[in-house]
Amino acid sequence: MEPVLPENNNKQGDENTMAMLCHLSALAGFIVPLGAVLGPLIVWLVKKDEMPIVDRHGRDSLNFQLTMLIAYVVSFILVFVVIGVILLPIVALFSLIMVVIASIKAYEGKEFSYPLSIKFL
């Protein structure tokens, strides 16, 4: 038996889908250099004016991805004193888990605040 999803009007469903894409597009960073920042940035810039939910989720996603970029750079520098070898996979796993959780929450139409995220935008 398939789960029953809440009924959304078409506009609300489209906004939730685009908000989810703001978060999921960050996974491009595992394939393309700086894709974790560029993916959410592109979705946010295209849809922020017409969809307020996408504006909110896009800002949150970008703030988190910029924070993670700083964490990756610091961890990479710390590789030279060995601690970064442990930190890099932890940062990557934390980022992946948070992106998946945020994507699910956005699709459900719920608010989600990334932990440890610096507010740049």
Rank of each mutant, 00 (worst) to 15 (best):
G35A: 06
E50M: 09
L34K: 01
L27V: 10
V91K: 09
G58E: 07
P40F: 06
V81E: 02
C22W: 11
I42T: 12
Y72R: 04
V82L: 09
G13Y: 08
G29H: 07
K47P: 12
G58V: 13
E50L: 04
T67L: 13
V46H: 09
M68Q: 11
V79M: 15
L87K: 01
L66H: 05
L21K: 08
L34H: 02
N63I: 04
A36C: 03
N63R: 03
V54W: 01
L34N: 03
F64E: 00
Q12G: 01
I70Y: 08
I83H: 05
V43I: 15
C22N: 15
D55W: 01
G29W: 08
T17S: 08
A92Y: 11
E15W: 11
I90G: 06
I70P: 00
I86G: 02
S25M: 11
C22H: 12
N16S: 02
I31Q: 03
G13N: 13
F30I: 10
P33C: 03
H23E: 14
H57Y: 10
V85T: 04
F64R: 05
A36Q: 13
M51R: 11
L34E: 05
L34V: 13
D60H: 11
V81Y: 08
G39V: 15
E15C: 05
P52W: 07
V82F: 12
L88E: 12
F64Q: 03
A19M: 03
F80M: 06
I86K: 03
L78C: 14
D49W: 04
D55E: 05
P89T: 02
G13A: 15
D14Q: 14
